[in-house]
Design a protein around this nucleic acid. Structure first.
Length: 571
RNA sequence: UGGGGAGUAGCCAAGUGGUAAGGCAGCGGUCUUUGGAACCGCCAUUCGGAGGUUCGAGUCCUCCCUCCCCAGCCA
């Protein structure tokens, strides 16, 4: 269950040239003509949860390396444990891999190989390399010994081959209850590597499997299934995460005993991210306990969550290319991911004006019924994106944060008596402030300079600030969901005695704004569409959005120097 | 106290005996109709520590220290 996170790597199609030790090994192997220069990899998730950004590292590595060396990469579901696996997960995994931008060559399931695996087990029994053991799970543990003490041989270790064959067949036929017997490899109970102390190959599980139904009641363990699956697919480079290093001798042992295609395993460091949990078990808990709305909640580090939030596959692939691949335990700062997201969105997201917390503005000297269409640039980073028109009129909304009755030093935006530019509009000057009974500012009176249409002053005078706005009469109502880190700690797994990781949940990770006003061009925005709300950040239309009610997710804010200045001033 | 891995800047990371790449973050500046973007500059006399070999060591040798993984009929 935790393993998926474990099979991951990094690199991407566009990372192509970036060096990492696995790539170096492949270059050597190709050069020396190993396997005829053929490169075959695989991405082997267990369908027991949704893919997250840690898996993206593995996907990019496996598919990226195959692509770079003209090889092939399979998608193989490691479905050897029917108690945890579901079809829902295999569907989501396929969708996510495709969304990330990869297409597998072969699509396989470890369960495709159950018959072959069974035959090989019989072969090992006949060779005296495996035996049926009647020890209980608890007894097996006791016989295994400890890190510093060798284990003891099972009393069933020396059963005759005939008896083993008979028992194993009856296990398969369902004659024995769950947990009553196992098939074990006969290796070495005193090995310093605990994985080699007669590991369990098969356990009895009277459970329906998502693909094989009730055909089997014995299921192979990971160690007995994974290497052979690789071998069957003639995988040349089987890439997995560091915690499987101890399993490599066992991976090799089965392949050697069976004399089958010698796939080789290489281990790399999995991805960790600050303020983020990448454990499928814990993510499942968040979903089941309702701390988030589902696997695709935009606060989740799942690929489906990030997709819904508005992250692009390119940004994620870019992160994977940036972090490289090594063998050191590491935790990448979230800011690097955020950088990748901004970098990509900056290039491609159309700009648009939206006011999240509206403050009404009346332009006293502007004609009551006049509406002007102002030309606005869609994307300064991309001339081909063209321009659009935005309506301007006497009543507007601006951002509450863009006005201060008593502006601090370095605050350049609107204040009483101060002139600013309305982007693509006019220069306006604040002349009066209207407050409610509680003293809250509810409306501003301003005057505009008709000479500054479009935002340029013929007399060349400068203004310190440009702010965004929306015409009140033309604005479209919208809901905007603001997200913050799901956890308050850099390492969400770090908890006080007696607490679990949910104690580190950020109570303010979601803020819903329901009174937002967006420019009319957004009226028919399609779900999934991504925009930059000028001066605010990148937003995408949520899948909950429908025609009467626009809903946006804030993907990520723009870099905000003003908030830095402000925070520094507070200290 | 067994075995398997890993230590280069706040984070990630190149480096494979010839004098410490790059990115993120941070800091300073230029430019700007987004306090965005872009651009320029600064940011490791030193590579976990101590010895040793060498004309020369992050790279080789010795000892030491720290961190991670393994005692599921999970993956």
């Amino acid at each position: 269950m935790n393993s998926l996170e474990s099979d991951s790597g990094a690199s991407s199609v566009e990372s192509g040239g970036r060096s990492n030790f696995i790539r170096d090994i492949i270059i050597e192997d190709v050069k020396s003509g190993k396997h005829g220069g053929r490169v075959q990899t695989r991405f082997p998730p267990e369908p027991n949860g949704y893919l997250h950004i840690g898996h993206a590292k593995s996907i990019c590595l496996n598919f990226g390396l195959a692509a770079e060396f003209g090889g092939r990469c399979n998608l193989r579901f490691d479905d050897t444990n029917p108690s945890k696996e579901e079809t829902e997960y295999v569907d989501s995994i396929m969708e996510d891999v495709r969304w990330l931008g990869f297409q597998w060559d072969g699509l396989f399931y470890a369960s495709d190989y159950f018959s072959q695996l069974y035959e090989w087990a019989v072969q090992l029994i006949k060779a005296g390399k495996a035996y049926v053991c009647d020890l209980s799970a608890d007894e097996i543990r006791q016989y295994r010994g400890t890190l510093t003490e060798p284990g003891r041989d099972s009393p069933y270790r020396e059963r005759s081959i005939e008896e083993n064959l008979d028992l194993f067949e009856r296990m398969k036929k369902g004659e024995f209850p769950d947990g009553s017997r196992t098939l074990r490899a006969k290796i070495d109970m005193s090995s310093p590597n605990l994985n080699l102390r007669d590991p369990v190959m098969y356990r009895i599980l009277h459970l329906d499997h998502h693909r094989t139904g009730s055909e089997w009641c014995i299921y192979p363990m990971y160690d007995y299934a994974h290497g052979q699956s690789d071998s069957i697919e003639r995988v040349t480079h089987s890439i997995c995460t560091l915690e499987f290093e101890n399993n490599r001798p066992l991976y090799n042992w089965f392949i050697e005993q069976l004399g089958i295609f010698p796939s080789r395993q290489f281990e790399f460091d999995r991805l960790n991210l600050t303020y983020t949990l990448l454990s499928k078990r814990k993510l499942l808990t968040l979903v089941q306990q309702g701390h988030v709305a589902g696997w695709d909640d935009p606060r989740m580090p799942t690929l489906s969550g990030m997709r819904r939030r508005g992250y692009t596959p390119e940004a994620i692939r870019n992160l994977c290319a940036n972090i490289s691949v090594s063998k050191t335990n590491n935790t990448v700062q979230l800011s690097l991911l955020e950088h990748c997201v901004r970098e990509d969105l900056n290039r491609r997201a159309p700009r648009v004006m939206a006011v999240l917390k509206p403050l009404r503005v009346r332009i006293d000297n502007y004609p009551d019924d006049l509406v002007e269409e102002m030309d606005a640039v869609n994307n300064p980073e991309d001339e081909s994106a063209g321009t659009r028109q935005v309506p301007f009129s006497k009543f507007l909304y601006i951002e509450q944060d863009d006005f201060r009755e008593d502006p601090p030093r370095q605050f350049f935006r609107l204040a009483p008596g101060r002139e600013v530019r309305l982007r693509y509009g006019y220069f306006i000057t604040c002349t009066d402030v209207v407050k409610d009974d509680d003293g809250n500012v509810v409306e501003l009176h301003c005057t505009y300079d008709p000479q500054t249409r479009g935002g340029n002053a013929p007399d060349g005078r400068k203004v310190k600030s440009t702010i965004h706005w929306v015409s009140a009469a033309h604005a479209v109502d919208a809901e905007v969901r603001l997200y913050d880190n799901l956890f308050t700690k850099e390492n969400p797994g770090e908890v006080e005695e007696g607490e679990d990781f949910t104690a580190n949940l950020n109570p303010n990770s979601l803020e819903v704004l329901t009174e937002c006003k967006v420019e009319p061009s957004l009226r028919d925005a399609a779900a999934g569409a991504r925009y930059q709300f000028e001066r605010l950040g990148y937003f995408s239309v949520d899948s909950d959005s429908y025609s009467e009610k626009l809903i946006f997710n804030r993907t990520i804010s723009l870099r905000d120097t003003w908030s830095k200045i402000e925070q520094r001033a507070k200290k």
